[in-house]
Write a protein that binds this DNA or RNA. Sequence first.
DNA 1: TTGTACGCGTTATCAT
DNA 2: ATGATAACGCGTACAA
Lengths: 341, 341
Amino acid sequence: MVTIKDIAKKLNLSYSTVSRALNSSTLVNEKTMKLIQEEAKKMGYTPNALARGLVLKKSGIIGMIIPDITNPFFPALARGAEDAAVKRGYNLLICNTDWNIKLETRHLKLIEERKVDGFVLSSINVENRYLEKLVERDYPLVFVSRIYPGILANFVGTDTEHGGYLAGKHLAELGHREMAFVGGKFKVGSVQGRYLGFLEALKEKGIEVRGDRVIEGEFTVESGYKMALQLLKRDRRVTGIFAANDLLAVGVMKAARELGYRIPTDISIVGYDDIFISSLPGIELTTVFQEKRKLGELAVNMLLDDIQGKENGKKSTKKIVLSPKLIVRKTTAPVRVTGNS
Amino acid sequence: MVTIKDIAKKLNLSYSTVSRALNSSTLVNEKTMKLIQEEAKKMGYTPNALARGLVLKKSGIIGMIIPDITNPFFPALARGAEDAAVKRGYNLLICNTDWNIKLETRHLKLIEERKVDGFVLSSINVENRYLEKLVERDYPLVFVSRIYPGILANFVGTDTEHGGYLAGKHLAELGHREMAFVGGKFKVGSVQGRYLGFLEALKEKGIEVRGDRVIEGEFTVESGYKMALQLLKRDRRVTGIFAANDLLAVGVMKAARELGYRIPTDISIVGYDDIFISSLPGIELTTVFQEKRKLGELAVNMLLDDIQGKENGKKSTKKIVLSPKLIVRKTTAPVRVTGNS
DNA sequence: TTGTACGCGTTATCAT
DNA sequence: ATGATAACGCGTACAA
């Protein structure tokens, strides 16, 4: 491996000059600079980010903690984050936690050792003492999409309550009155928001949701399927279902079809997130859209601003909340005028 | 930041002893070791991977280059890779290239500076001089899923030719004789394999594919849609279509439906990859399955074996080729006995 | 078993 | 404009 020293020797110069030249410092003769840069290229010099990081106390890497890149919500998020990071000269280290706090903590510790310059996390659903310490220690960090309950930290996300509201309003305006909510774990803050917003919209129309029509499960197709199967079997009057995310909604669709429902003629279904699959032919789910990619971008930009601002002594807690948008596709329609048994 | 020195001072010991204790070296008194480890924890010591990497000439990070994590094929691959990496104490740095060689090269250079201990790449479609240099320099590296043409390097992938064969055989056995191939860029080696295998299977049944029924486009739903639309409009006799991947297949499905085809009654469609969406209710695509997650795992394990083996002076070029599997779902059926106009 | 001293590759602070 | 030298935090050969 060719180092700064090697090219210094070769050119009978000192390390310092070479280092400066390579960093295009102004305080070095133009000619020697060119000389050095050419020689560097010729010798195949590659800077060593480890060494640089050691002295600069920066790694140039930021860590991204997510539950599972395999879940269709996260690739777009990660992609946005990576793009923004690269654009500013950083790289992204991705860790999957499987919604497991132990794993999350382990990853946090491990990549803190790597001296990542900051974290972007979207993994939070439950208390994590180590994470709390991290923010107490003022480690640069921003929460995306899901915020840690009761903590003051940077956040980038979508107005979930408003999103839920849009879904509820849409169904209500279509004339639905018998509605259900199929949710993931309510501990995840964003689900609560969606639910609350949903209720809010219905209330405005004088509609209430019966307690037995609010179900909780996992964030998966399978779970949505099971929940809807159980719900619709015992309760044929429901005509509108709001699912906490698109995966769930797809499961609900499957269950409804199996039970002989036509979508959207007999039943309307609204999802949340507008993940990739939702617009696919054969699915075409009405859903609440949030800008996942942009969320990722905004998050790392906020993080990087923070990191670079901190050097100038600035500190702040920022928050960006994007507005969701309703996307009407083919799983919602006006309620039928004739009731069914 | 608390360092080894700090805890050495506090305990009136030398750096070395502390360093050894923290690495659980055998050549240190058990008592002092415990003492040191406890003190380290108490003081909140965190090892600095940068410094360690500098002396050990290892970063503990491996780089993964893929075209686009947003493409449903890659999350599973990345996840498998990350799991395997973490299991062996490494982390994964992910870079998206958007199938752009310039970007790929830039990423390669950049993360080489980060001293990643090796690369896993799945980005290759076209000549990249810098990449060639990398393998010439013997940089630890393994290709996943797509191999670089005409280069001797580690590889983990699926037997694409056999995969294509399975698809062709399936359609042929269902009685289809008028078939088409809807492909992505043929430059991507894996597509050629799929195509060749497909042809091979048909040939065994005495079936040929007309040249105007082989179309090339992008690897997207949209592209599949357009190609199929164009094909099926001018050629109503086709009853079986093999798409080079599932995204394309979904697009084909959409086009067929729009033109009034019932699937699979009027036309059979086979995809490739079995990505997440393909099993979804409303899609249920017959496709050729490959173990994406396992591919990722195998790749980083091979890489890590290589890295750790190299220290012992071993060198080798390994190859692992998994077998694909046909998954029959609801987009294929026996050809109708009555021909249509 | 423990301590001393050097080097990893780079940047930064002094001088010159 | 350039050079010498000290860090950065850690591992390790060598000495004790």
